[in-house]
Amino acid sequence: MAASPIRGGQAAADAALAGLDLSGYAAGRSRVWPRQRRATSRLSPYVRHGLLTLPAVWAAAAGAPAADRAKFREELLWQEYARHLYARLGPATARSLRFAEPVAVPSPVPVPAWEREPWPAEMACVATCTAELHQDGWLVNQARMWLASQYAVRAGRDWREGADRMYRHLLDGSAAANRLGWQWAVGTATGRVYGFSRQQVEARAPGLCGTCALQRACPIQDWPEVQTGARLQAPAALSGGRGWGGDSGAGPRRAELSGDPQAVWLTAESLGRGDPALVAHPQLPAVFVFDEPLLARLRLSGKRLVFLAETLAELGCEVRLGDPVSELAGRRLAVTHAPVPGFARRAARLDVVARHPWPWLRRPGTGSLRSFSAWARSAR
C-alpha cells in the first residue's frame, strides 16, 4: 500500500503550518475539482492526531485576509464543537441526534446503479471523490457532503455504515467530526437534508459532468425529494449539564499529579512533540500502543496506518501491539487527557499518576450544544 501524499510526522506538520496561505480560502474551500482550483489547507490530519493544536492553527491564521481568516476559523470552531459534542455525548453520537433518518421519495429518473452500490463507479462525481478518498486518505468538506448525501439520502442506506466506510480511509478520521458531518448531511442533527444534485457538481467541479458516462442520464439531475424524519427525543446532555462520563469531558485545567510516573503514554489524539505530558516529562520513555482489538473492528486503511507509523517513527517512542490496558499494566503513567470515551475507559483501568490538560481552543462547559451557531457565538 503506497503512502498518502499527506505524510505523517511532526516535520511534515510543521512544514504544512509554516506554508499556510489562506488567500482565497473563503471562495475556494468548497471546490472539488479540478484540484488545482482548490483553496484548502490540508492541516486536518495533523490536527486530528495532535501534531498541530487548534490554538496553534488559529493563531497561524492571524495575518490572513479578513474574509478568509473568518471562514477558516469558523471551520476550526466546527472541529472544536465536534470535540465538545463527542466529549459530552460519547457513544450517543452514533445515534440520530434530533431527527429520524429522512425517507427518500422515488425519483422519476430510471433506477440507478446504487441499488447494488451506494457509491456507484459510473458516476464521475462519486468516482472522483472515492478515488481521492482511497488514494490520498483525504477529501474537501464538500466532497464528504456529496458522498454522505449520496449514500444515505439518494441510496437510502444507513448513514452509520457510510460513516464507518469513510472513516476507515480518512487520515483525519475521528468519530467526533466524522459522525457530526454525516448527521449534518443526512438531516438527523438539524432536520435539514443536504440534497446532493448535479447543480452542485457543475458549480463545484466545472467540467466534470462532461467526463461522465451518465451525463445524458444523470441520476442526480434534480434535487432529491425527501421527507424530513420525525423529531426524536434528543439526548438530555445535548441541552446542557453533565455528559456520558459524569462531566463535560474537558479534563483537568492544570496537571494533576499523584506520584512519580515511569513512562509517558501517548494516545492517537496527541502524537505531537508538543504533547503536554511529553514536554513535562522529557526524561521519561514514551510508549504508544496500537489497540489490536479496536483495529480489528475498525479495519483502517493501510494509508492511515502508514501515517501513524511515520509519525511514531519520528517520535522514536516504544510501540506495542495489543490491548492498551494489558500492555501498559504495571507502569505508573503520565498522559495528556484526551476528550474521547475510549481514553476515559482505559485511563480508569491504568495507573495514571500524572494527567495533563488537553490544549482546548475553547474549554467545554455545561451549556447547550444543540446549535453550533449559538455555541460558536458564546465560544468567541
Results as ranks from 00 to 15, higher is better:
Ala250His: 00
Ala334Trp: 01
Ala236Asp: 14
Thr311Ala: 04
Val111Tyr: 06
Pro34Thr: 05
Ala155Met: 08
Ala121Glu: 13
Asp351Phe: 06
Ala13Ile: 11
Leu89Cys: 05
Leu214Pro: 07
Phe196Asp: 10
Asp247Arg: 03
Ala354Tyr: 05
Thr336Arg: 05
Arg304Asn: 07
Glu117Met: 02
Ala286Gly: 09
Tyr194Asp: 09
Arg35Val: 13
Trp184Asp: 13
Ala237Ile: 09
Ala347Leu: 10
Val126Gln: 09
Val352Lys: 13
Ala155Ile: 02
Gly9Tyr: 14
Pro293Glu: 08
Val319Ile: 05
Cys129Ser: 13
Ser326Gly: 08
Gly8Ile: 02
Leu266Trp: 01
Pro357His: 09
Ala92Pro: 03
Ala26Asn: 00
Ala296Thr: 13
Ala12Gly: 00
His84Asp: 04
Gly50Ser: 09
Trp114Pro: 03
Gln215Pro: 01
Arg165Glu: 12
Gly259Asp: 03
Glu256Tyr: 02
Arg168Thr: 11
Arg95Asn: 05
Pro108Cys: 11
Ala94His: 11
Ala94Trp: 12
Thr128Leu: 10
Gln79Val: 08
Asp158Phe: 09
Ala62His: 04
Cys212Arg: 08
Asp222Glu: 14
Leu361Thr: 00
Gly195Met: 04
Met145Cys: 13
Trp244Met: 02
Val153Ser: 04
Ala92Trp: 03
Gly195Leu: 12
Gln233Cys: 11
Ala334Asp: 01
Trp114Asn: 12
Arg242Phe: 02
Gln221Trp: 06
Trp223Gly: 11
Val264Thr: 03
Leu271Trp: 09
Arg231Ala: 15
Pro285Phe: 03
Leu308Cys: 05
Ala268Trp: 03
Pro55His: 00
Arg231Asn: 03
Pro45Val: 10
Val111Thr: 11
Arg95Trp: 07
Trp159Thr: 04
Asp136Asn: 11
Val325Phe: 04
Ser239Ile: 03
Trp184Ala: 11
Arg273Met: 15
Tyr25Ala: 12
Leu238Thr: 04
